[in-house]
Design a protein around this nucleic acid. Structure first.
Length: 805
RNA sequence: GCGGGUAUGGCGGAAUUGGCAGACGCGUUAGAUUCAGGUUCUAAUAGUCGCAAGGCUGUGCAGGUUCAAGUCCUGUUACCCGCACCA
């Protein structure tokens, strides 16, 4: 009677229906409770969708579909994060306009995503490269500029010699460019910077107000890298100069036996000018050598400490007046703290190594270790020694006492430091948002008036950056020439563009009101929809993207644009899908699975089902096409349930426990993202039905409803064939009957001294006495307890443990 | 080095507060159905001893707590991810 299960027919059929009836679009009305799930919008690369995208998308599609059935107004949006290097590089190679490349890639992604049947609200699709979108990216940048959070700085940047582009620290991996693997060198360039450091403390504190999985919070905190300590002023002996250091160990100040300043430290220049240095040539040579090294190389050489003494000067330890030498060494970084340290070799491993190499004194000020062997860095067990008024104190008390002392004397103060650095916000690239500022000889940097946004990219022929490292825009002479919005004099435009992180830092806001031309989103809409209720994405974006977008959101909150302090209420992460042999999927390994091929072979439903069934959602997991076929087989089994329809109706007693138990299990497991066990329980129910031999329409409808968030097409089709009046996209999520979960009788395992020896069946709710007697009268139990003393009988759950001796 | 994670059959993985280890699926084996099978159905499938009934051993490793430990405690090993001279 029933036709064969053919996903290639029913999947396009239902996708068309869903499109036509607009059933997955968010409702304009604010009457219902809202639910706003979010997945990281894809970068539309030329390679097309990979199997990682559907993992995240399906997971939240399941939640979104379930929420709709539970009566929520759901906004599950999709868009494309389309500015950036891969597209531009492809455009340079082929001569195609990056816009065309982007359009083609988006068309491919859209088609692939639609084939998988996600319940996105396609009416709100966004694209970061659309001028009507980046108008608001530029608007936010101007607001940041207006509030002093965007500034230009001459700073050494990481420069990829291959991409010819400045990279943020986070884009340099293992000393090479994250994208192309090219060599990265230091280059000084004038860059736009965003003062994310102003928000460091709030970015830490507000993690307490959101529901992010722990490891994400930990990573955010580590990245921000807060430390508490003190700033201490050392003087240069005989000169009116000071060296400010930052230390987390002010307690060890009496143990400082030398100082080290970074090779880039300005004190070197000042001392040169004063003619105080006896070995200027040596120092300058060292400085130049350090400049040639990248941060990575400086880190690589961590074993061997190098440096040069600043001959001719001595520093003075402010707490005891001791004169100590000053060195410059590249193990002290200009970018952290003050670029200068007091060295306490007895209690810092790096200082210890350096002191050993340069034969410098090592003075113990915290007892408890053996400083002839290694630095003693433990703060918990040691006691202060050789430290005047600190002697005998615990380390942590000594820290406080020393800071109080420094503040009292005016030679230092309490200080909190962060590893987080300001965000390098410019790229010397064509395919990014133009920075809407002009440079005027008279007025300096002047922002474009808001009404002139968007500042669109000019049409040019060649998108490659120039060899000097400036963007292709630097050659768009007509576009560059403009007039100063302030004084009307001739002025030039900024030719750098924004980094890829810009558009993705606020995209969730645009989904709320994607076509608004007067604001990035309407206020009352934001009040209804914000914050994002559930954000899922990869672990690779849990530091940078998440931090950047939280920063922007907080800024927008501060200036009254958004109504919440945090953008995302809940953040989860899916594990990466690895190749069949457990290695990372990559083009070079040739182990990439193309979703299209899987859908061609077994359909979108089986593909979705497998991606959710393959293993724990948050763990990395190898792909198995064979495993996917198993999921297709399960759907075949579900399809054939149509041939087993019974004339009876309702949920029959024999299946009541299984059916209601599955409703409970599936509902709970979806919420906890335990998709694998939810699906396992549905498989079990199907096995139960097969064992029974028939199924009622009502029983099958429950199963289809539970299955529909994962495998929506087959569920809808079978629901229709069953003759149910409403399609599943209008259905209610089933409720379970608690009383049906209780069986009449229960089987108990009887243990003797903790080992299972027998099984007994008793009436559900039987009293202790009855259970004990039943157990003791069991033949197997009797045989084993005969002649022994029963010490104790413990009855817990489904276990009876008889302790005998 | 620091931070985080993981360890269970041939494989992916299950296992509320400690309570029957191996659910569910893959693979494999046997049988049935089929002209055929990359179909379907039935059965078996941790190891080991045994003809069998049944016994013993088993959750990286070594101890411990408990009537009872994959789960808790102490120590230890391996692998994965992130950060890395952050003073």
């Amino acid at each position: 009677m029933a036709t064969r299960y053919d996903p290639s027919v029913i999947e396009p059929k239902w996708q068309k229906i869903w499109d036509e009836v607009h059933c997955f679009e968010a409702e304009a009305s604010h009457d219902k409770p809202k639910f706003f799930p979010l997945i990281e919008f894809p970068y539309p690369s030329g390679a097309g969708l990979h199997v990682g995208h559907p993992r995240s998308n399906t997971a939240l599609d399941i939640i979104a579909r379930k929420r709709r059935m539970e009566g929520y107004n759901v906004l599950y949006p999709i868009g494309y994060d389309a500015f950036g290097l891969p597209t531009e590089n492809y455009a340079i190679k082929t001569g195609m306009h990056p816009r065309i490349v982007t359009e083609q890639n988006i068309a491919r992604f859209r088609a692939q995503l639609k084939r998988l049947g996600f319940s996105f609200d396609w009416s709100r699709e966004i694209n970061t490269t659309d001028p009507s979108y980046y108008k608001w990216t530029q608007w936010i940048f101007l607001k940041l500029y207006e509030h002093g959070l965007a500034y230009k700085a001459e700073i050494p940047i990481n420069f990829c010699t291959s991409c010819k582009v400045g990279l943020a620290n986070e884009e340099v991996v293992d000393g090479v460019c994250e994208r192309c693997g090219g060599e990265v060198v230091q280059k000084v360039r004038s860059q736009w910077m965003l003062k994310i450091t102003d928000y460091a403390q709030r970015l830490i504190d507000d993690l307490d107000t959101v529901d992010f999985i722990d490891r994400v919070k930990v990573q955010q905190r580590n990245w921000i890298g807060r430390s508490e300590g003190a700033e201490v002023l050392f003087t240069v002996d005989g000169l009116d100069k000071t060296i400010k250091v930052y230390t987390t160990r002010p307690d060890t100040l009496f143990g400082a036996t030398y100082m080290v300043i970074s090779p880039e430290h300005t004190l070197i220049d000042e001392l040169c000018e004063l003619g105080k240095l006896e070995n200027v040539d040596e120092i300058k040579a060292y400085r130049e050598a350090a400049a040639r090294k990248s941060d990575f190389e400086r880190g690589e050489l961590s074993k061997e400490k190098t440096g040069v003494m600043l001959k001719g000067i001595m520093a003075v330890n402010p707490v005891n007046g001791t004169k100590i030498p000053v060195f410059t060494s590249d193990y002290v970084l200009m970018g952290y703290g003050t670029g200068a340290i007091m060295a306490v070799p007895a209690h810092d491993t790096r200082d210890y190594d350096f002191a050993q190499a340069f034969n410098l004194p090592i003075i113990e000020v915290v007892s408890g270790g053996d400083i002839t062997k290694e630095a003693f860095t433990d703060c918990e067990t040691g006691k202060m020694v050789n430290s005047d008024f600190l002697n005998g104190m615990e380390v942590n008390d000594a820290k406080k006492a020393m800071i109080d002392f420094l503040e009292e004397k005016g030679i230092g103060k309490r200080k909190v430091n962060y590893k987080l650095r300001d965000w390098v916000f410019t790229r010397q690239r064509y395919w990014g948002e133009p920075i809407p500022l002009v440079h005027c000889e008279h007025c300096g940097w002047v922002p474009l008036p808001y009404e002139q946004l968007p500042l669109t990219l000019p049409e040019i022929e060649d998108y490659a950056p120039s060899d000097d490292g400036s963007s292709a825009l630097a050659r768009a002479t007509e576009w560059i020439k403009t007039t100063c919005p302030k004084c009307g004099a001739p002025a030039t435009r900024e030719t750098d563009t924004m980094p890829n992180w810009a558009g993705s830092s606020w995209y969730y806001l645009r989904y709320i009101d994607p076509n608004n031309d007067d604001a990035l989103a309407d206020k009352s809409e934001m009040e209804y929809w914000l914050p994002v209720d559930w954000y899922n994405g990869g672990m690779e974006h849990t530091t940078l993207h998440l931090l950047y977008s939280r920063f922007w959101h907080k800024f927008l909150y501060d200036i009254g644009v958004v109504p919440t302090a945090e953008p995302y209420q809940k953040r989860t992460s899916h594990g990466m899908i690895l190749g069949e042999t457990g290695e990372k999927m990559s083009k070079s390994r040739g182990n990439v699975i193309n979703p299209d091929e899987i859908v061609d072979e077994m359909g979108a439903d089986a593909f979705r089902l497998y991606e959710m069934f393959m293993g724990a959602f948050d763990q990395p997991i190898p792909w198995s096409t064979q495993g996917a076929r198993g999921c297709k087989r399960f759907l075949d089994r579900v399809w054939r349930l149509q041939e087993m329809l019974s004339d009876e109706t309702g949920i029959r007693k024999e299946l009541a426990c299984a059916v209601n138990g599955t409703i409970k299990k599936v509902g709970e497991d979806y919420e906890r993202m335990k998709f694998n066990t939810a699906i396992a329980s549905m498989m079990s129910l199907v096995n139960d039905i097969y064992a029974k031999g028939d199924v009622t329409k009502d029983e099958l409808t429950v199963l289809l409803t539970l299955l529909s968030p994962v495998a929506p097409h087959i569920a809808e089709e079978m629901n229709e064939i069953l003759g149910n009046s409403e399609p599943l996209y209008k259905a209610k999520w089933p409720q379970y009957d608690e009383s049906a979960l209780v069986e009449d009788t229960v089987e108990l395992a009887v243990q003797i001294n903790g080992k299972v020896r027998a099984r007994i069946t008793v009436a559900n709710g039987a009293d202790k006495e009855t259970i004990e007697q039943t157990a003791l009268n069991n033949a197997d139990v009797k045989a084993l307890t005969d002649g022994k003393t029963v010490r104790k009988i413990i009855i817990v759950k489904n276990i009876v443990n008889i302790v005998v001796a």
